[in-house]
Design a protein around this nucleic acid. Structure first.
Lengths: 346, 346
DNA sequence: ATTTAAAACGAAAACGATTTCGGTATGTAA
DNA sequence: TTACATACCGAAATCGTTTTCGTTTTAAAT
């Protein structure tokens, strides 16, 4: 019924708790005979060390915390998978928390994880996070923390990201290459770094190609729960505002899919009238009609990489060595599909 | 640097550890003055109770384990979200593990969670799980465990499910209602209960409507990583095998989407030539062309409900009361879309 | 038989919080 | 003055492991 303890094993064998503990951990000062007896009894009693006691002694939990803005999300769920799998390989368990894009929740959750004495933290910031005290607190406690995807450049910790600016540049350049002259941008919220960087990449591509940058062609989408609706609405708005746009670079596939949906409904031909490039390479993008050109964003790899970095830092801290923050940039890839499948315009 | 302990607070205030502990927990035998002092210092020192020590004393971790076959999955990620949100509300943390549809992994992970001394376990079984010893072990230890979606009827624990048979029946009946006479079924693997039940619902609907049941019209799809491809291949195979099929009830939306994709490519008209109903109501189903009729499966609610049930059982166990296993059935809904949008055939 | 080294085991202190059970004060009533 | 509450506080045991530092036992050497 109640879990077996070392003490019970010791009593049954008429030896001390110390000996039992040592036998199970193969200490050299225990005879093979005793080891055999102990291990056998431990197995038949189905002994499992009490992790609370072990953690208390060893001051480590073999557990990490993960804070993510949204679980139901193609990219993030891939990240989660990468983290969880890699963690298990190294004997770590993952506590998952969802910030719901809320700064307040994020703060509370970080605190929760600290109370829980996790060995390290992986976090992708909420859109609303503009203040970083809560993150710096973690760092001040020498608790390893690695940020991924949605990061704050200013915080001094390791980060795993993609080069959003470069990727956005490539996406926009692709639109230009197929002949687009008036390219709009559906960007994400104002705060998150990747949303900023994607916008900057878009802008730079325009300027480098001697195309005018027109702020009225830049629309803001929430990219949250309402992404799809956002895409539809923004697409409609765009048509009302401008009749000469021939290409759009969109911050997120889901928004892009909303836009495509709306354009399909309104009879706007893609890619003939308007060509579109999305971002993230959601599975859906390869299925929708027309299939969506996009930037492939390696979620699974990002999760895996983030955990690996965190793991290194956890080991460092255990050896009382200083953590040297590292910025790891993962490669993205432009995926050309039907939504930009066009011979040159004009 | 190192986390603050009760002892440090006690020393700074020249009082005992006992008093500090009691003050923080508002024991009546501590003066308000002392309480004030202690609480203030605790706050300025940013004291957080060491969860290992607390757990060790209290024999509870305020943590539950979640084992799920696949994280990157529309339905399951909704379940996860429901669980995580509800758990946090009740002050519980969730450790997430992915079995990858592997019985061996599932067994190992259950053991891990038991070692970790989680207060309860939520699990959706791997397809490969046909032996239930590992689950019964948990129950024998009086550790609450609630199964959801992919369950084993024979295991004596609470379960949160949908009535797969009824839902499948409704889906098939819908195909019949719009005039389909030769209805195929792409079923899931042989083992999981829901895959079996959906098949049975399909079969019963045929017989109840005096349509012959033809085993050669039932195809098995993996419904794993390769769902989409599976759908495409099976669709192609179906066309080769039978030229008279006019409707398909498909075990999973993703497989259905693969099938639609293939039919679109091959020029088979949906719903005119073949009508299709899927299962789960993945977001994608409302976006694909034609939009897919399907069964709405309440993932978020299922997660929420499963946690609530687990929570009740955890409280029961704490009060040394017996657990009475409960089976909770959630409602599904037939969603009619373009893939069955047809005036009667013939 | 005595010494010495090696092998095998255990006592006890930690880890940090909780809680029971007493022990001082202080004040009030007899 | 004594008796008795009441209000406050603390010592110590406990949870289950780990690990240090002895201690005992055994075997080998003198």
């Amino acid at each position: 019924m109640k879990p077996v303890t070392l003490k019970q094993i010791a009593e049954q064998l008429n030896i001390s708790v110390t000996t039992v503990s040592k036998a199970l951990k193969d200490y050299p000062d225990i005879s093979n005979k005793t080891k055999g007896l102990v291990k056998e009894l431990a197995k038949t009693l189905n002994y499992k060390p009490n992790s609370f006691a072990v953690n208390l002694r060893n001051k480590e939990s073999k557990t990490i915390g993960l804070i993510i803005p949204e679980i139901v999300h193609h990219f993030f769920s891939n990240v989660i998978k990468g983290i969880v799998e890699q963690a298990e390989k190294k004997g770590f368990l993952v506590i998952i928390l969802q910030s719901n894009e809320s700064y307040e929740l994020e703060k509370k959750q970080l605190d929760l994880l600290l109370s829980q004495r996790v060995d390290g933290i992986l976090i992708s910031l909420a859109n609303g996070t503009a203040d970083f005290k809560h993150l710096n607190e973690v760092i001040d406690q020498d608790k390893p923390i690695v940020m991924f995807d949605k990061i704050a450049k200013i915080v001094k910790c390791s980060k795993v990201i993609i080069d959003d600016r470069k990727a956005a540049y490539a996406a926009t350049q692709h639109l230009i290459d197929i002949g687009c002259k008036r390219i709009a941008h559906f960007r994400g919220p104002l705060l998150p770094q990747n949303s900023i960087d994607r916008f900057l990449g878009y802008k730079k591509a325009l300027l480098d190609n001697n195309l005018p940058y027109d702020p009225s062609l830049v629309y803001i989408c929430d990219c949250g729960d309402t992404s799809f609706e956002d895409g539809k609405n923004t697409a409609k708005q765009l048509l009302e505002d401008h009749d000469d746009v021939d290409g759009i670079f969109i911050n997120t596939d889901l928004v892009a899919i909303g836009a495509i949906s709306e354009f399909n409904k309104l009879g706007v031909k893609i890619p003939e009238d308007i060509s579109i490039v999305g971002f993230s390479n959601w599975f859906m993008s390869s299925v929708i009609s027309p299939t969506l050109s996009t930037i492939d964003q390696p979620g699974y790899l990002m999760g895996k990489t983030a955990f690996k970095q965190l793991y290194k830092e956890i080991k460092k801290v255990k050896k009382d060595e200083p953590i040297i923050p590292k910025i790891i940039e993962l490669n993205t890839k432009l995926i050309k599909r039907e939504s930009t499948n066009l011979v040159l315009k004009n």
